[in-house]
Amino acid sequence: MTTSTTGVFDTSAPWSLSEQVSLRDESFGALAYHHGNRRLVFLKSPELVALVRRLDEFESVDDAVEAVAPAHERGRYTGALRSLHRSGMLRGR
């Protein structure tokens, strides 16, 4: 089984959703499934889903979070991305 080989999560670098991941919208946000490591992850808000979908428009994770999330929630969104990274869902560009 593939483990995460995506390295350290540097939020000043550009990342995007791994091409092995399928996203499916749900009423609470979305489900993400990684076809390689077979992990299923829940994205628990539509805002987080929007952020994940738009990651590759930005030059860094920090920029993406700044553009998408309200100021007081940035920590939480970065944390959610960090946990997606731990599950192997993100890919460095």
Partner: peptide, 18 residues
């Protein structure tokens, strides 16, 4: 088990997981 999420699941999803 994440209770809030489980409640959502009990109301059904856009497509099955299993």
């Amino acid at each position: 088990a994440d209770t809030s999420l489980r409640d959502r699941f009990e109301r059904g999803l856009a497509a099955p997981i299993c």
